[in-house]
Amino acid sequence: MNWIAALPMYNVSPALAADWRALLVDVLRQVEPSTEIVEPDDLHAFWRRPDLLISQTCGYPFVLGLHEHVQLIATPQFDAPGCDGARYSSVLVTRADAPFDSLPACRGARVACNATDSNSGYNALRHAVAPHAVEGRFFGATLETGSHLGSLRALAEDRADIAAIDCVTMAFARDAFPELTSRVRELGLTRSSPGLPLIASKRVRPEQIDTLRALDDALAALPERATRLRLKGFAHLPPEAYDSIRQMENEARVANYARLA
């Protein structure tokens, strides 16, 4: 089979995208050097392709059905505020000059989210808001931006008042776009959950999976690149570890807060 691969989730800047691609090339050299590295348009369709050798997904789509189509390879461990081993949180942020000093104080404010299928930008935020909602509502307006950077820009441009940003993305944004991140400030963190998993098609052979799991070798080969990618290593979690993401969704639904509103 001709395999394909991509690491699309943390390409926050062109420099980071180049580093992620270079890391992927080094990993593939040990497994299937002829693998084609692609830039997928439709991530949900891409993650379900039978010729997928390795990619990275969000934990929310993973628990909502993707896990039936893929194998879990590993979970990155990042050096970023809000991370703890293989777990991460979302950073609750508002504009630097906004009057809000806590999440409860944001009642009636405008919320921005990157996508409704995002754990960090939607599911974790919904879970954090649920205890404060009244009859299923908390915010005055909701804006879907398409990306965490888009949500940060919406805050900076006064098109939204609050957003939840993946803490790893936030750390990368602070590195790459200090002018943008200087225009927002943090209000707190959401509950943590397992980080964004690396996955492979069910058709990838066990021996290939074992080789792919030797990811730390690629990190050790170029420590400077690992530092730029804020990668400390990789954990091997069971798929059941991601059930906590579904639990966050269920707790919000029990609190009558099924959607961000």
Rank of each mutant, 00 (worst) to 15 (best):
A218E: 04
L180F: 05
G195D: 04
G233Y: 03
K232N: 13
L180W: 08
R230D: 00
L196S: 15
L222A: 11
L189N: 07
G188F: 13
D216L: 07
P197T: 14
A218P: 02
A221W: 08
L180E: 02
I245D: 01
Q247C: 08
A221Q: 13
P197M: 13
T190N: 04
L215C: 12
P239G: 05
Q208A: 09
L196R: 13
D210G: 05
T227W: 10
S192P: 02
A200L: 06
L219H: 04
S193F: 15
A200R: 08
E207W: 11
Y242V: 08
T211F: 00
G195T: 09
Q247H: 14
K232A: 13
D217G: 14
Q247D: 13
D217A: 15
E224D: 12
T190I: 07
L215V: 14
R203L: 11
E186R: 13
Y242T: 06
A214T: 11
A218R: 10
E240W: 04
F234M: 08
P223E: 02
A221T: 13
T211V: 09
I199Q: 08
A171H: 07
F172P: 00
D243P: 03
K232E: 12
Q208W: 06
P194R: 13
R205V: 01
R246D: 06
L229Q: 00
Q208S: 08
F172C: 04
L229A: 03
L219K: 06
A176N: 07
E224C: 07
D243N: 15
L231W: 04
I209K: 04
T190E: 02
R205T: 05
L196E: 12
L215T: 12
K232W: 06
E186K: 09
L229E: 00
R203T: 12
L189C: 07
